[in-house]
Structures are given as C-alpha cells and as structure tokens.
C-alpha cells in the first residue's frame, strides 16, 4: 500500500468504505450468514464443491468482463455453449477423440465471439441486438441439430475428467485459476489490457490516441468466445453429455455478476477479480440456499433482493465518486 493510498484510506468514512468495498463486504457477509444458517456450508468439501460446480460459470463471467469492459454485452454465450457442446460432443462420440472434440468446441465458440465482434464493430449493430439474434440462432441450431435430444455416450476420459483431482482439488478449479491468471496478466501487464480500458472508457479519445478501437473490441469479443469454449468443455465434462437446453440463463447471470462487482455497463471500468468475486457470490448464494433447502420460489426472491442491494450499493458508490 503506497503513501497516497494510506492517506486516502484514513480519510474514508465508514459509509464510504462500505460503498467502495461493497461487493467484498457483501461477499463476506453472505459467507458468514450461510455459515451460521447451514451446518454443511462451512466445510472444505462444500467450498471445493462450489468452486468445482461453478468453475464454468466463473470462466464465462471472466469472458463477459472483457466484453463489458469495451462497452458491450454478450447475450449469446449460453446458446453458444449449447451449440458448441452438442457439435463437439457428436464429434467426440464419432471419433472417440476428446482433444479433437475440445478443439472444435473452442473453435466454434471463438468463431461465435468473432462474429459478435464483427457485427457490433463493423456493421454497427448494438451489441444487445446482435448477440440476442445470435442467441436465437445458436440455440435454434442446437435444438435442430439434435432434435432436442441430449448427446450421450461421450468418451470416458472426458467424463472422468470432471472427477479428477489434484491435491484433493478438482481439475476444473485449477483450470479456472489458470484462466484467471492469464486474463489478469493480459489486463494488468500488457499494453492491450490498457487499450481495452481506454476503448471502453472513451472510444473517441482512444482512437485519437492511435488505438485501433475496432480491433481491440473484436479481440475482446473473441476472448469472451474463448472463455465460453473453455466453459463448454467443463460443463460437458461435468454433465457427461451435451444438452441443447443448457445454460439458458447464464448470459444474464454473468452480466449481473460483472456489473454488481463494479464494472460499468458503459465500459472502461472494473476489475477482473471483481467479476470473479461477483460470480462466486452468485454461486455461493445458490449453494447456500440449496443447502438450506429453501423453496425455489423463495430462492428467486432472495437472489433478486441480493442482486438489487448489490447493484444499488454500486450505483451509490459511483454517485459518491468512490
């Protein structure tokens, strides 16, 4: 902590502190609350269970962060997961080759990301509309291709991957950490990362500064596609089959996770760690409510209230200039 920051922290009132670090405080508060409410919450097994179960979701949220950073959204990632999973799974079943299937999944997802980027940047379609259109196209294609049936009979090496552990921690958790480190490196230690913040913050100024705004935006969408592809592999491995109806709500949940964690919907703001914390907060809420055995109807209300409070705190933080 440098001198400037120390000085700044001393000047922060309690209210300001709560607003500035609201997401982390909220995360901690929910964590503590569930620990008291459910005896099964505060266990290593459950902690690892959350990381394992929601690794695909956290990775998706990290990808979404890049798109939100450049001022866009990607509503198509859930449908892309469905399409890439059924196509990749079909190939795996036919060839018995997991690497080929995984490569195809990633390639399709990245292709989808590039298409999103081109549609927004080159054609000028608002990201909400472009990705909404692709959401329908990908989902419809997945249903059509499979006639709404799941693709099963995947190679056992893929399905057993979801059970594989390193030092008692599931492989999916390690993949999530690796993806986080790589993306964090890109954002914090490369010029490209700084360009993304500049593009999202003020595209015109970024252009004047000589940044290729269009290229940066397309790459951001491609990174989102890449994350979607990795998520797809984890999800298929976790479920042992590919289902065209999966991940229907993941896009909105990822956007919510990124926004409640402090990213600006207008772009140019936020931290990757915040997106991860936001996604894990969602995961923790779902897990905690499940362990409590709370009815689905109450779960909807509770999760809605939490999202509302978290977002309201964030807006207040912005208004307070923190």
């Amino acid at each position: 902590m440098d001198v400037k920051e120390k000085h700044f922290l001393r000047r922060l009132s309690l209210k300001e502190f709560a607003l500035k670090y609201g997401i982390y405080i909220g995360f901690l508060a929910i964590f503590i609350a569930f620990s008291f409410i459910s005896s099964n919450f505060l266990t290593v097994k459950n902690f690892l269970n959350i990381l394992d179960q929601y690794a695909y979701y956290v990775i998706c949220a990290m990808g979404m962060f890049f798109v939100v950073l450049v001022g866009g959204v990607d509503l198509s990632n859930g449908s892309m997961i469905a399409l890439a999973s059924v196509l990749g799974a079909t190939l795996m079943v036919a060839t018995k080759s997991v690497p080929i299937g995984c490569l195809v999944i990633v390639a399709i997802a990245v292709f989808g990301g590039i298409l999103n980027g081109l549609s927004v940047v080159k054609i000028g379609i608002p990201s909400f509309i472009a990705t909404l259109a692709f959401q329908n196209i990908w989902r419809g294609s997945a249903y059509t291709y499979t006639t709404a049936k799941a693709v099963s009979g995947l190679p056992s090496s893929l399905t057993s991957f979801s059970f594989s552990e390193i030092m008692g921690i599931r492989s999916s958790t390690f993949i999530m950490i690796i993806v986080f480190c790589i993306l964090l490196y890109i954002l914090q230690f490369t010029g490209f990362g700084k360009k993304l913040y500049a593009v999202g913050g003020n595209p015109k100024a970024a252009k004047v500064m000589g940044i290729n705004v269009k290229k940066a935006s397309i790459i951001a969408y491609s990174i989102c596609g890449l994350c979607t592809g990795i998520s797809t592999i984890l999800l298929v491995s976790n479920m042992g089959s590919a289902n065209p109806s999966v991940a229907e709500n993941i896009a909105l949940e990822c956007i919510a996770a990124v926004i409640i964690a402090g990213a600006s919907a207008n772009g140019g703001e936020g931290k990757l760690l915040g997106a991860v914390v936001g996604a894990l907060m969602f995961a923790m809420i779902k897990n905690g409510l499940n362990l409590m055995g709370l009815s689905y109807f109450y779960q909807l209300i509770v999760s809605g209230v939490i999202i509302y409070i978290a977002t309201a705190v964030d807006r207040l933080r912005i208004r307070a200039g923190l």
């Binding site: 179960q53 929601y54 897990n287 362990l291």
Partner: peptide
C-alpha cells in the same frame, strides 16, 4: 439440467 446436477451435488454435501 446443469442446475439440477449442481443441486444433487449440494444434496450430497
């Protein structure tokens, strides 16, 4: 289905 898989694992927990 993915929610259900998660919920079953939560029931195990």
């Amino acid at each position: 289905v993915e929610t259900q898989v998660t919920q079953i694992k939560d029931l195990i927990t």
